[in-house]
């Protein structure tokens, strides 16, 4: 299909969608209204389960099954990227590293912010059931925070600190831990991912039952997943040379 035909087809279809969307919007409940039936049930369930972050309660307690699916998508995509980006037969891994120049200010910024970012990442994971945050958000902070070492100009330092195979195991471990917790609660209580440990007091660090544990498992998985993903892309950009000797 050529570009003109495709554009005409899109204008017809997109225009139709736009008209339907406006018609739908005009008959939707008013923006900012107070009628949220799901909210009422979710907040009551969360409070009765001693979880002060209602979003975490929904993700890891009330709809934990969905989160298992979500992190399976993450696992699948990490595996997919690893498979797609492994060096092909006609490609070689160049060991030579060009020594680029890094501004001193960038280097200093990277080294100063690295520990700060890691602490923030752990905090976001650990307090995920109390404050905004959780395993997904904290995991991304941890995984990308480590790459400040790369920004600071030391790819070798990053490579030493980041054995990719360890993070591949971490990725699998996080996903497996989530599933195993679900299966063990199925055996104990008869319901998948139901809570098996005491709820604790509302608002305390030790509260919300299994939510912080699941947050930790997801944190490990996401941090490892981000590390593996970025490692594969960086390796592709820095090391892999195509067979024709070109440097894509």
């Amino acid at each position: 299909m050529n570009r003109t035909a495709r554009t005409v087809m899109f204008l017809v279809a997109g225009g139709g969608v736009a008209v339907l969307a406006v018609l739908a919007v005009l008959r939707m409940p008013a923006f900012g209204g107070s009628h949220h039936p799901y909210r009422d049930h979710a907040v009551r369930a969360s409070v009765s389960h001693a979880t002060s972050n209602v979003v975490a309660s929904i993700n890891f307690d009330q709809r934990g099954m969905d989160t298992l699916g979500e992190e399976t998508i993450l696992l699948a995509s990490v595996v997919g990227v690893s498979v797609l980006l492994r060096p092909a037969e006609d490609e070689s891994k160049s060991e030579h590293l060009g020594s680029g120049r890094v501004l001193d200010a960038t280097r200093l910024g990277g080294y100063v912010l690295l520990p700060v970012t890691l602490v923030v990442g752990f905090d976001v994971v650990a307090q995920g059931h109390l404050t905004p945050g959780g395993g997904f958000q904290g995991g991304v902070v941890l995984g990308t925070g480590m790459h400040l070492l790369y920004v600071a100009g030391r790819y070798q330092a990053l490579e030493r600190l980041r054995p990719v195979s360890a993070f591949e195991w971490g990725e699998a471990f996080g996903a497996a831990a989530f599933a195993c917790l679900g299966i063990s609660s199925l055996l104990v209580t008869g319901a998948f991912l139901a809570n098996v440990i005491p709820w604790g007091t509302f608002g305390g660090l030790l509260s919300a039952g299994t939510v912080p544990v699941l947050n930790g498992a997801v944190g490990v998985e996401v941090a490892s997943g981000v590390m593996v993903l970025l490692a594969k892309f960086l390796e592709q950009a820095i090391f892999v040379r195509s067979g024709e000797g070109g440097t894509r």
Partner: peptide
């Protein structure tokens, strides 16, 4: 929809956490 640290009294006058969890997904 977050009542923790320091704990505040839960109320129902919060934005809908269900769609926020979906947005996270």
């Amino acid at each position: 929809p977050v009542f923790g640290s320091p704990p505040s009294k839960p109320s129902l006058s919060v934005t809908d956490p269900v769609v926020q969890a979906m947005t996270l997904t």
